[in-house]
């Protein structure tokens, strides 16, 4: 005796089998990171798509001699920077190294303008300029060579070397790497706000370097080595996602120095490019996506950004980034890409 299966039942069976097979594929594909984590990232990513657009502001600035405090002020307002009144603020420029003729570090004029804005307009309680240099253990030589020593003395702002600070072990929330905790400088963990002030550049490992890559400098070299390669071994993109997701500072902002950018073989040996722009915002991913567009790159093609966007760490899509200030199309300069190998 044969039992006939109705067409509807067959369809249901097929659908069920399809779901099971799909589930098995997803499970297999996500086994390396764990299905629960993958599902959490994917769900958050989907939820982020429905969240409000992130504001990113652009300002034209032709030279470091320009009135940069006014530009920073306008940019901060346009980007709806956080209220920092009475806050302890860590300002983190990119001082990766000093190579004569190579603009691989954030210009001190930009950091100085930000300091003046924070002190005079934002009325913060305390400003600390902090960095954990990548290639050299001696911060003083880099501070002198880059002009930061003089600027910091002029502004009477303290510098903290994050490579040698007291340490705090912070939990890593994301699970993107095999690490579940990270040593971090107490100066950063105790701050109310972190402002990433990177140089706009191309990078031979990550293709671009802006506000997110600049965060590498906040981890202590004394634990992770010089150039903190132990963390590169976790996968640069995965580790940066971890760092962005686990930042202990409740308020943050990114101000990118693109007045003179660095193109080609970044982070050190690239060539200067007069890109004439400052940009900023609270959503580091949106800021870096905009930075990529300014350099003539498509953010969706940059792995460092796409994974973070997929995991919901910020916005990447053009229609989810509300640009303010100067027009991006007028400020775009095509950067020579970093060599790939």
């Amino acid at each position: 005796m044969t039992r006939k299966i109705s067409r509807r039942a067959a369809l249901r069976l097929g659908l069920g089998a399809g779901i099971l097979a799909g589930g098995a594929i997803v499970y297999r594909e996500t086994q390396a990171v764990g299905f629960d984590k993958w599902a959490r990232w994917a769900l958050r990513g989907q939820a982020t798509r429905f969240s409000a657009a992130s504001r990113v502001a652009l300002a034209a600035a032709d030279s470091y001699d320009a009135e940069l405090v006014t530009a920073v002020d306008a940019l901060w307002r346009a980007a709806e920077g956080p209220d920092l009144q009475n806050a302890r603020v860590v300002v983190k420029p990119n001082l990766v190294d000093y190579i004569p003729g190579r603009p691989c570090f954030t210009a001190p004029q930009v950091t100085e303008a930000l300091i003046r804005f924070l002190r005079d307009t934002a009325r913060v309680k305390k400003i600390i300029v902090a960095e954990g240099m990548t290639f050299r253990r001696d911060p003083h030589a880099i501070l002198i060579d880059t002009g930061y020593r003089e600027m910091l003395e002029r502004q009477r702002v303290e510098f903290v070397d994050l490579n040698y600070d007291d340490l705090v072990k912070i939990p890593l929330r994301g699970g993107y790497t095999k690490m579940d905790s990270l040593f971090m400088a107490r100066t950063v963990t105790e701050a109310d706000a972190l402002i990433s002030v990177p140089k706009l550049k191309t990078h031979h490992w990550t293709q671009i370097s802006a506000s997110i890559k600049n965060l590498f400098g906040i981890v202590p070299g004394i634990k992770y080595g010089f150039p903190k390669n132990t963390l590169h071994m976790q996968g640069i993109n995965a580790f940066l996602a971890e760092l962005l997701d686990s930042l202990p500072t409740p308020r943050r902002f990114a101000l990118v120095d693109g007045i003179v950018g660095l193109q080609g073989d970044g982070p050190l040996f690239g060539a200067p490019v007069a890109s004439g722009v400052l940009l900023g915002g609270q959503d580091f991913l949106a800021v870096d996506a905009t930075a990529a567009r300014l350099m003539g790159m498509e953010p969706q093609a940059l792995e460092i950004l796409t994974f973070m966007a997929w995991a919901g760490l910020g916005h990447l899509d053009e229609n989810k980034i509300a640009l303010r200030g100067a027009a991006l199309s007028e400020l775009r300069r095509i950067f020579e890409p970093a060599p790939q190998f």
Partner: peptide
């Protein structure tokens, strides 16, 4: 010596005192 390799991608790395 620099901190590791003498060359990186397109450029000679400079020696450091340390």
């Amino acid at each position: 010596w620099n901190i590791g390799n003498p060359f990186m991608v397109t450029g000679n790395l400079p020696p450091t005192v340390e």
